[in-house]
């Protein structure tokens, strides 16, 4: 098992440490190190702070991953740029064939949003499965995506929905396709001076069905495997199949082979079985204390078949 523990810690994210960094050599106290907290009230101010301080600063969104990292002193920024006082970064807007969600929108607000429920049931369902209510009440969609935990729900969702991630810096705005955003464990395309500010979510097409399913050792834990499915049907046949997996590799990823199988052979039992097998074969999970790589791979397959079945049922294609 490739798990390394330092003073009893193997991970503080949904993923195990893969290296013993300089930071982890210490005694792992549970109080944050000395740092400055800057609390800008506007986006412009925040961006200029990030530009000024570069690697020394870290943005603080909901704090549900960062604060534990700080307390264990596994993360030691000199400066925290607290985004919580920036008024206009939390919103859910209807913009034509998309919705735009501000990066500081709390997960709980997404879960409770009628608009999200109507136009992006996948996003809504996935949100309900994030951790526990107190965590969703603080945690933000932007924070979760920027943290890029490979076992978290949102990265898989934005991949399946082919969302765009809007990032800004003093240098200007970039719009990054979800497929180009996640680079490695806890690593994204964001530059140190850039801030994730918005996510645009395409509305679910008419005739589509979706599902987010995951399995964890306990309710609310990071998923051992989770699958997001967004499938559009025409006359009972899939026309656009999007499947994405979390918890089964260094980043969330699309299950392209499984997608092709469903696209080509439909959602009959045999096709789903084949897609499930393909999904299992395509992921490259890691062993940890809670599940071996083999078991995670197996679960990725099981979650794939469950997600496809549910999505098809919801589209009225399977009973």
């Amino acid at each position: 098992m490739g798990v390394i523990a330092v003073a009893g810690l193997t991970r503080i994210t949904g993923w195990v440490f893969d290296v013993v960094s300089e930071l982890q050599k210490r005694a792992n106290p549970v109080k944050p190190p000395l740092l400055d907290i800057l609390a800008p009230s506007s986006l412009a101010e925040a961006l200029s702070l990030l530009s000024e301080h570069g690697d020394a600063a870290m943005p603080l969104a909901g704090g549900q991953s960062l604060v534990p990292l700080l307390n264990f002193r596994l993360s030691r920024p000199d400066i925290l740029v607290d985004l919580n006082r920036i008024a206009n970064l939390a919103y859910i807007k209807d913009v034509g064939d998309q919705i735009a969600i501000g990066a500081m929108t709390r997960e709980r607000a997404i879960e409770e949003s009628d608009l999200v429920r109507q136009v992006s049931p996948l996003l809504q369902e996935a949100t309900t499965q994030i951790a526990h209510l107190p965590i969703r009440s603080r945690g933000t969609i932007g924070g979760s995506l920027a943290n890029a935990d490979p076992a978290a729900e949102y990265p898989a969702v934005v991949l399946a929905l082919e969302c765009e991630i809007v990032v800004q810096s003093v240098r200007g705005e970039r719009r990054i396709k979800a497929a180009d955003f996640f680079e490695d464990i806890l690593t994204t395309a964001l530059a140190p001076d850039e801030l994730l500010t918005e996510i645009t979510v395409p509305k679910a097409p008419v005739g589509s069905g979706s599902a987010f399913v995951e399995i964890a050792r306990r309710h609310g834990d990071y998923a051992l495997a989770g699958v997001a499915a967004q499938i559009t049907f025409a006359n009972g046949a899939p026309t656009d199949v999007r499947l994405a997996v979390c918890g089964a590799g260094t980043t969330a990823s699309r299950l392209t082979v499984a997608e092709e199988i469903i696209q080509r052979y439909g959602v009959g039992a045999e096709a789903i079985k084949a897609a499930s097998d393909a999904a299992a074969a395509s992921v490259d999970p890691m062993s940890d204390l809670h599940a071996s790589a083999d078991y995670r791979r197996r679960l990725a397959g099981v979650m794939t078949s469950q997600a496809v079945e549910k999505a098809a049922q919801r589209a009225g294609v399977r009973s």
Binding site: V3, A5, A7, G8, L9, T10, R11, I12, N28, F72, H132, R217, R218, H219, G220, D221, L289, H290
Partner: peptide
Amino acid sequence: GQLMTGSFMDYLLPTASD
């Protein structure tokens, strides 16, 4: 002899839903 379960991330207590 290294302990692998030094936080509640890895030491899993049953919660109400379990």
